[in-house]
Amino acid sequence: MPSHNDRVREALARVEGERAATANAGAGVRIGLLGRGIGASLTPIMHEAEGRRLGLDYRYDPIDFDKLGLEDADLGAMLEAVRERGFRGVNVTYPFKQAIIPLLDTLSGEASAIGAVNTVVFSERGTEGHNTDCYGFAQSLRQGLGVVPVSRVVQIGAGGAGAAVAQALAELGAMEIDIVDVDTSRAQALAAQVASANGTLTRAMTPERLAEVIEEASGVVNATPVGMEKLPGLPFDPGLLQPHQWVADIIYFPRETALVRQARDIGCRVLPGGGMAVYQAVRAFQLFSGREPDPLEMAKTFAAYA
């Protein structure tokens, strides 16, 4: 019977074999994406297209734990395996953005403050975790919605992505942030973290108070995975929304979630998750390659495949 590490290496070999006909196994810059249900992700396409445009030998492999039949406990072994195979680094998505932190040697200041990692860079110094989601969400909101009221924002979800979004909201000038999560202790921990780091009035709310807090909100953000192709559905009842509010979703596959669609029908200004996906990829590309990517070109690639 194969050992734990052997099973992970065999899974990685399957990923490499499946892409052998379309990608260079000996690429100068090799990147991976660790997560579950990531088959529809456009991050690999954006990275590889920008790499080609800049004349780089660049390959980006999705490593889907669902497709490969891997357990969450295999995360550390996979991190070690991709490093052994010469990867420059990996992006990390649901459900590993917080679970990966104990496996890393160092964290950037932003990743440490947020408490979540979506980008890991390998170097002679070891493994360093970064968070490009915070920048990605903030830049997406600026570009996609422009100036919107942020006097009181309700955020649904306090997981790895939610930690980055809450920090971005604080940096965007939110005066009050209500964080709602089915895991009350997780919401409380995130609220305390954001308040301590930014001085922003941040409260943890139970789902039972959702109707109350949404009624008083200027905007609402879905930072849960509910609505993904893997987890279809609605994170809350859109009937609670009012036309003067704005609604943002961090999910981009499907390209337009049921929440975004129904919020638009109500009359809300909406922000799908595509912009965040583009801008987090822009920052991650720079970290991996040391080159400055063109955000407009990466956005064009995203739009062409979305």
Rank of each mutant, 00 (worst) to 15 (best):
A25R: 14
F65V: 04
A27P: 00
A23E: 05
V29L: 12
T22N: 13
S41C: 02
G37C: 10
G35N: 01
S41T: 06
S41Q: 02
S41Y: 01
I38H: 00
E48V: 14
R30T: 07
G37A: 08
R59F: 10
R30H: 09
E50W: 02
E48G: 10
D57W: 03
I31K: 02
G32D: 03
A23P: 07
R36G: 07
R36S: 07
V29P: 04
V29A: 07
G51Y: 03
D57V: 08
R52N: 15
L33I: 12
L54T: 10
G37L: 02
P44A: 11
A23D: 06
T22M: 12
G39I: 04
P62F: 02
R52E: 11
P44Y: 03
A40R: 12
A27D: 01
E50I: 10
G51C: 10
I31M: 09
T22W: 11
G51F: 03
M46H: 05
S41N: 04
T43S: 14
G26R: 11
I38F: 07
Y58F: 15
H47F: 15
L54M: 15
G37R: 04
S41D: 03
L56K: 03
I31S: 05
G28M: 06
R53S: 15
D57I: 05
P62N: 06
M46G: 11
L56G: 06
T43I: 13
V29G: 04
G28V: 06
D64T: 12
A23F: 08
P62D: 00
A23N: 05
A25Q: 14
R36L: 08
L34T: 03
R53Y: 13
P44C: 11
L34E: 00
L54N: 06
I45E: 11
R30Q: 10
F65H: 02
L34A: 01
F65N: 00
T22V: 15
Y60I: 00
A23T: 13
M46E: 04
L34H: 01
